[in-house]
Simulated scan of single mutants.
Amino acid sequence: MIDHLRDLASVREATDRLLATVSSWDNAALAEPSRLPGWTRGHVLAHVARNADALVNVLHGLPMYQDGATRDADIERDAGRPLDVQLADLRATADRFQAAAEEPADWSRTVELRNGVTDSASRVPFRRWVEVALHHVDLGAGYELADLPEDFLLREIDFLADRWSGRSDVPPVTLRSADGRDLGTTGGTEGGPVTVEGSLGDLLGWLAGRGDKGAALVTKGGPLPELPPL
C-alpha cells in the first residue's frame, strides 16, 4: 500500500542530501558536465527545481508543464545561474512542493502528469523522490545508484519494468536480483526470453539508462537487450 506521508518524508531527506552535496560546490563545479548528455550540473539542478513547481501544478489540478518547448526553455534559462541562486531556488521550490503535498486532499484521485500520463495522486510524492534521488546520482558527485535505499530501488525497478512491458522492441525479460529474488518480468512477447540478473542498483541503472547501463549484469538466454530511450 502506498504511504504518501512516508514518501513525503523520504522526499525531504533526499532533498536535504542533495542540498548538502551542492552546498559544498563553487560556481565552477556547477558548470561541469553532468552524467546526462548535453547537460551541465546546472541543467540538472534547474530541472529538479522546475520539476517541483510542475508537480505542485499536478497536485492543484493544473497542467504539469505549459508544453514541452517551454519546459526545455525554462531549464536552459536557469542552468547557468550562480550557485547561490540555484540553491535558493532548490530550497524554495522544495518547500512549495512539500506545502502543497501536505494540504488536505483526496489522495485516491487521479491526476495527470506529463504527455497525458495519469496516475493516483498518492504516487506523486514517490515520483518526486525519484526525481531528486536519480538526478542526485546524475550529478556525478559521489552519490551512486548503489547508495539508494532498497525500498526505493525495488519500487522504481517495478515501475520501470511496467513501463517497458508490452514493448515489441524489447524481448521478454525476467528480472532477478543478485541474491536470487524474482523481481518480475518486462518486455514484450517477441524474441527469445532473457533472464537478467544483478544488483538492484545495476538493474535500475539498466532500466533507467543510467550508470554503465547494465554492463555488470549477468544474462541467460541471450545478450542484454538494448532498451529504447525513456
Rank of each mutant, 00 (worst) to 15 (best):
L8E: 05
E13F: 01
E13C: 06
A14V: 04
D16M: 02
D16E: 08
W25Y: 13
W25M: 10
A28N: 03
A31H: 09
P37R: 12
P37A: 14
H43F: 09
D53C: 10
D53P: 09
V58F: 00
L62M: 12
M64E: 14
D67P: 13
D67L: 12
D67K: 11
T70E: 13
R71A: 08
R71G: 08
E76C: 10
E76N: 12
R77Q: 15
L83R: 05
D84I: 05
Q86C: 15
L87A: 07
L87E: 11
R91Y: 05
A94Q: 11
Q98L: 11
A99N: 13
A99V: 12
A100D: 09
A101I: 04
E103D: 12
P104D: 00
S108W: 00
E112C: 08
L113V: 08
N115Q: 01
T118P: 09
T118L: 04
R123S: 08
F126T: 03
F126E: 02
R127L: 14
V130L: 11
E131T: 05
H135M: 07
H135I: 04
H136A: 12
D138N: 10
G142S: 07
A146Q: 10
P149A: 06
E150G: 07
E150V: 08
E150T: 12
D151L: 13
D151P: 05
I157P: 10
R163N: 11
R167Q: 00
T174F: 03
T174W: 05
L175F: 02
A178W: 01
D179R: 15
T185M: 11
T186A: 06
E190I: 06
G192M: 04
P193C: 15
V194Y: 07
G198I: 05
G198N: 03
S199K: 06
L200G: 03
D202C: 03
A216R: 12
A216L: 06
L217K: 00
T219N: 09
K220G: 01
G222K: 02
L224V: 07
L227T: 02
P228D: 01
P229E: 12
